[in-house]
Design a binder for these strands. Structure first.
Lengths: 156, 156
DNA sequence: TAATCTGGTTTCAATATGCAACCAAATTCT
DNA sequence: AGAATTTGGTTGCATATTGAAACCAGATTA
């Protein structure tokens, strides 16, 4: 009946998808990365219904992916800005973008390049790398329990 | 009324999300990467309803992310295996996994390490890199039109 | 002062999800 | 061999989510 949620899953992918895993959330984050901050702009750029946009923005704020800032001079006027947690989705979004470009090229061939602001050069494809920095595939990895259970660590 | 779809969007992230952007699809792909191939195993590991799993597997097969292989000796017995397109989601899944681990650590602290099979070392955090291989953030990139419109290229 | 912009909320129809029951072919158990 | 179970689904029904459009109040612009 109720839609499944994964807040307490012990799978970090499931927990991540719980926060940004619906149709719209990552697109909102993407546009925030492109510079969009205002409710109306999100709505027009995404073509999303207002009630859904409200819900998604609120959820992203709840989950600390965006922060809602009142930038009004006299009354209130809001902006939604990426937090560090939100900006940290950059590799996810870019990897997804590159995958989409590679396997489902733009129908009108109007693909856009992402380039390094300082050098003007295109960025690299996002890869998974081993400790030596060599690119690896899914066949090259295995899952291991964290060796020291008491130690909090940022495991990959 | 009808749920929005992004098949023909000129945004590659939208097109990607159209194929793997719902609550379950990426989890199915993840478990496929962990080695799961059989219907029943997906169902038990994910705790997903059978009709939804049917739908998602069929959609992933339609989109060429999985292929359905009849491995039956006498009658039919199916396996769902990742295609190259599916395996190519590895950076996406790993980036999402690392993001989930970093910002929403496992409640029971039972996080699992991904390690390189040959060296036994943990893998690196997935990064976006410029042409020189230096990690960059969302602030370091800009979007540019592909310079030669007639040329088909794998733009980032 | 009137019109419009902004950031919403409400209502309602269409669609998606989840559970449980059912099913047929293949396999395993006794 | 016959019965029970496994596999890979489908169907029906109740609930949840989505999307369009109407509405709204405060701030801004004409």
């Amino acid at each position: 009946m109720t839609k499944k949620r994964f807040d307490d899953s012990n799978c970090s992918v499931a927990r991540a998808l719980n926060q940004v895993g619906d149709w719209w959330s990552l697109l909102v984050v993407l546009h925030a990365m492109y510079g969009t901050r205002r409710f109306v702009d999100f709505q027009q750029e995404l073509g999303i219904a207002k009630n859904i946009l409200c819900d998604r923005l609120a959820r992203l704020v709840d989950n600390d992916v965006l922060k809602k800032v009142d930038v009004g001079e006299h009354g209130s006027r809001f902006e939604y800005r990426l937090t560090e947690k939100g900006r940290d989705l950059f590799p996810v979004v870019i990897a997804l973008r590159q995958w989409g470009n590679k396997w489902n090229p733009a129908p009108d061939d109007a693909s856009l390049d992402l380039r390094d602001r300082t050098t003007g050069q295109p960025i690299q494809m996002v890869q998974v790398q081993n400790a030596e920095g060599e690119p690896i595939t899914v066949r090259d990895v295995f899952v291991s329990a964290v060796p020291v259970p008491g130690t909090k660590k940022d495991s990959a």
